[in-house]
Design a binder for these strands. Structure first.
Lengths: 192, 192
DNA sequence: TAGCGTTCTTAAGATACCTTAATGGAATAG
DNA sequence: CTATTCCATTAAGGTATCTTAAGAACGCTA
């Protein structure tokens, strides 16, 4: 369980054996049943979270109560309401398990200790956040310049592993269209 | 000119006098005339860039040649084709001056030296990127859940200083609508 | 001062996507 | 095993936004 986490970090920065041990000790596992919440709007987000197993979604509700999925997370991904975590303000997002999941989480205080003890942890999160930023930029550009059909086709090609774990209406929410419209897009594709 | 840069860093992390000097020495100024390019698609982006003065835009062109503005940058902001910078692949974006501008830039090699010499530089860019990520997440949510009119009103309230430096058709591009549509939105607002 | 490029506006017709409502199949709970 | 909820599909009518085209206002520059 912890091997996936340490491996994830070592992909980007070097760690000594002692540092790896210290990191492992700082994370605690959380087990989630399907539909269980890891975070709800209004709560405080005091942990950085790494998905060890399963599939979760990060979403918010607009004034009309409509759900907008900002991000999915599967095994090997980090997920959080980063704004709430950084500012220590109440969360505006929900994080909920789509399937039974296991998450490794570290409290902010402990992570800040790691930042001070291990220079490479600062670097790891810098690079990780940079990569996330780049991915989000690309999504933004795609949302601006592509039709819903193009975005759908790109998603299923790129994230086949996620598509197979989520219901279609959640994918619709992520893509920014209604489930009905996604259904009709799929029909058009079937009919060539 | 360099004071703005050092001040920008010291807002987030502490620096010694020596470190500040080292940082200043590592950045070089670039002067841009209106419409001049700082980076063009296809080129390599080997510098991190800080806008000291003026106003620039980061955009790409889609298959039809339509311009999509991903980000504006004004005095005190960082701007880059981060993907191209990080991967050392050819840029897919353009960075172009909207008004006469001054940019301070640092070469990747020199920045990496700073990362090794000054732990706080890793932290600075970690925090800076986190903040950028959070802002981009919020924009993504807004794009998914709000009408063009709501996005326009939010932009002019939040970024009044940018709005006053850019032509309206560029704002339309940033908001993801046509200039004609933005014009009609403004007409509706005038008429209440 | 005239002329030209740039930017903004207006309007008509086209299209992508939404809303609502109804149906049937699949998954889940009791 | 049955009842119930959840999910995907279909279709009709509505709305937001786009496309195209034209003209007006503004500011450079010759």
């Amino acid at each position: 369980m912890y091997d996936l986490l340490i491996g994830n970090i070592k992909e980007l920065v070097p760690l000594t054996e002692d540092e790896s041990k210290l990191i492992k000790k700082s994370f605690e596992p959380v087990h989630l049943k399907k539909k269980q919440f890891l975070l709800q709007s209004g709560e405080y987000s005091n942990h950085m979270r790494f998905i060890s197993q399963g599939c979760v979604k990060l979403y918010n509700l607009d004034e009309l109560g409509v759900e907008h999925i900002l991000q999915f997370g599967i095994s090997g991904w980090w997920i959080n309401d980063l704004y709430a975590y950084l500012t220590q303000k109440p969360a505006t997002f929900f994080i909920q398990a789509i399937t039974q999941s296991t998450v490794l989480q570290i409290h902010r205080d402990r992570l800040n200790e790691l930042f001070d003890k291990i220079h490479m942890m600062d670097r790891f999160f810098r690079i990780k956040t940079q990569n996330g930023y780049v991915a989000l930029q690309e999504r933004t550009i795609n949302n601006m310049s592509q039709s819903a059909e193009q975005r759908y086709l790109e998603f299923i090609e790129r994230y086949r592993d996620i598509e197979q774990q989520i219901p279609q209406y959640m994918l619709a929410s992520y893509l920014g269209v209604t489930p009905e419209h996604l259904s009709s897009i799929r029909k058009n594709i079937r009919d060539y």
